[in-house]
């Protein structure tokens, strides 16, 4: 493409934005609103996902062993499975200490060994078995691993926070799916809005288009300024959305940190940079796609 053609096209698109100032402004505002909503959904989804995975990561399977079981063999059998990340031996004494702590048993002894002895005496023996603490690679596999572990000889019982884990996993999956669906709906809405706006612009400039067609401009030549106009609008909308979302998110993060300590929001610069980049990319794609869609109808020749 020749340089003066590029210059002409850029000038045409810019003129389009300026001349149809109000319509352009409406388009930019619409895109910004759509992207803010879309971005908010994405941020919420990312955080729910993040929380779910944090919880799920903490999820472990406790494999209780029979008294005479070969610990090393069972450990090896579990670690032989690809889904298992870790299988740590937890002795019955350690379990006893943890249990005592959990129920808030107050003992005057600071030394762990003596404490164990004291509790054992109190209870007349340690009722707890030795166990293995198994961590999965993917929390989704917990039920499967548990089922397999039960079959290993020497395993007395397998326990995991069945209900909690499964609920969390369902929540994580649900967030993924509903986020995707919402995202798609918002995406389609944004596309429609941009398409309508560009159609208005095209309508406002139909005379010019007609003249261009009559003096022999190719369809691409006519399209490019409108496409660029859509891209400009998409870009501007995305920038506004970022300017609104990032400070709002940062504010929300500060508030939640202060007041709701048990919630951990994602706050890595990297993630937010990717997010901002994604918004800009969405704006660009929506802008271009929206105008392309409405142009297709308008520029059809015999």
């Amino acid at each position: 493409m020749r340089l003066n053609t590029i210059e002409f096209l850029l000038q045409q698109s810019w003129e389009g934005v300026v001349r149809n100032g109000l319509v352009s402004l409406a388009a930019v505002a619409n895109i910004a609103v759509a992207l803010v909503v879309l971005g908010a959904i994405v941020l919420t989804g990312v955080n729910l996902q993040h929380m779910a995975s944090l919880q799920a990561e903490a999820a472990v399977i406790t494999v209780d062993l029979e008294d005479e079981a070969d610990t090393a063999e069972i450990q090896a059998a579990l670690l032989g499975r690809q889904q298992v990340k870790e299988a740590k031996f937890v002795g019955k004494d350690e379990s006893l200490l943890k249990w005592a702590e959990r129920i808030g048993l107050e003992l005057p002894e600071p030394d762990p060994d003596r404490r164990v002895k004291l509790i054992t005496e109190l209870l007349g023996g340690n009722p707890l078995p030795d166990s293995l603490c198994v961590k999965p690679v993917d929390p989704q596999d917990i039920p499967a691993i548990a089922a397999e572990a039960k079959k290993i000889p020497g395993v007395a019982e397998v326990r995991y926070g069945e209900q909690v884990t499964e609920k969390l996993l369902t929540l994580a999956r649900g967030t993924k799916i509903s986020g995707l669906v919402m995202g798609l709906i918002m995406g389609a809405a944004t596309l429609l809005i941009i398409g309508t706006t560009i159609r208005l612009t095209i309508y406002a400039r139909r005379r010019e288009i007609r003249i261009m067609q009559l003096v022999g401009a190719t369809n691409w030549f006519i399209r490019i300024p409108f496409l660029l106009e859509g891209v400009f609008q998409g870009l501007a909308g995305a920038l506004i959305a970022i300017i609104i979302l990032l400070p709002a998110y940062s504010y929300a993060q500060g508030y939640i940190d202060r007041n709701l300590e048990f919630i951990n929001l994602v706050y890595s610069t990297e993630v937010l940079a990717i997010f901002a980049f994604g918004l800009v990319a969405c704006g660009l794609v929506f802008g271009a796609a929206g105008s392309a869609l409405s142009l297709r109808r308008y520029l059809r020749v015999v």
């Binding site: 007609r210 003249i211 067609q213 009559l214 003096v215 022999g216 369809n219």
Partner: peptide, 24 residues
């Protein structure tokens, strides 16, 4: 074909009753 039409229009130009000038 439609994509060839612009090249024909460069050989055949048209003047209308309503001028069709760009006002700005």
């Amino acid at each position: 074909p439609p994509r060839r039409v612009p090249y024909l229009r460069r050989k055949v130009s048209v003047v209308f009753q309503d001028f069709r000038l760009l006002p700005d």
